[in-house]
Amino acid sequence: MSKKLSANTIDLLNRPTIVQSAAVGGKKEGEGPLGSYFDIINEDSLFGEDTWEKAESTMQKTVVNKALEKANLKSTDMDFIFAGDLLNQCIGSSYGLRDLDIPFIGLYGACSTMAESLTMASIFADNGLANYAMAVTSSHFCTAERQFRFPLEYGGQRTPTAQWTATASGAAIVAPNGDGPFVKSVTIGKIRDFGITDVNNMGAAMAPAAYYTIKTHLEDTATQPSDYDLILTGDLGQVGTDLLIDLLMRDNIDISKQHNDCGLLLYDLEKQDVHAGGSGCGCSASTLCGYILPKMRQGKLNNILFIATGALMSTTSVQQNQSIPGIAHCLNISTQR
């Protein structure tokens, strides 16, 4: 059973387990610092398909099948799948997962989708609604560029604050019982908008949401940053990270020792020329599912906060000069019950 602790935070009393996870990445992700932690690296950005959208769907299907294979499970063992991506109408997920025959719940939380889907899967597992629930999300550099920005071959320049959408996907399977890592509690964030209008500065747009969710989680669970080995945000990048630490410091919460960001881990910022860091649903999904969760299983990390952040704008809202709302959801994942 789950227990609501506060307006935002839910305590998952049965401590559902993330039984298995998998990550798939593209060529650039394979060349990055986390390259060796991916289950599958696909050198071909098209994943053998003829369009980028089909490629993203195939990537999502691949990661789901890989997670099932690693867990020694079949798709029919899954009771629910929670999935989403960045594409209009979430076609990355719906086309990628349509052949799997699993009850499907599509989600949109922009780049926060890994935390959102994992939260939902954990709540379902905790309340006995699923023996197995899966959370999956993806992003693809090429689909994101053509939908949100410019054609790939357009000769434009990125600003220093721009981030690089990861071509990556991550999937995690949650069960009510197991040996861990356990999802102990989740904090559902509120939409936060501090008035940022620059679409090339997503980190700045999302930092307020991360700030709110982390602060709320620490207060609701009566914990300190030092209680955690790692406080991992999704894709704030360099600018968002600096802002988040500054915002929390104003409330005398110092997370600088524990904090890291998937957008800073996934790439070598200078060598791979990704400016302020990585972004996209797949950035936090692959970092969590490919790098962090295995580390927890190996006992190298014990108690973490995972806070994926999303920017909830669309090209239309941006063209109409609206500011960018941010969202962040937080999960406390621990090897101890």
């Binding site: 220093p160 940022i196 500065n201 360099q238 600018v239 600096d242 802002l243 500054d246 915002l247 302020a276």
Partner: peptide
């Protein structure tokens, strides 16, 4: 916040 963002955003 706009000022803070400016401070951390490289030119």
């Amino acid at each position: 916040y706009s000022k803070m963002t400016e401070k951390y955003s490289k030119n």
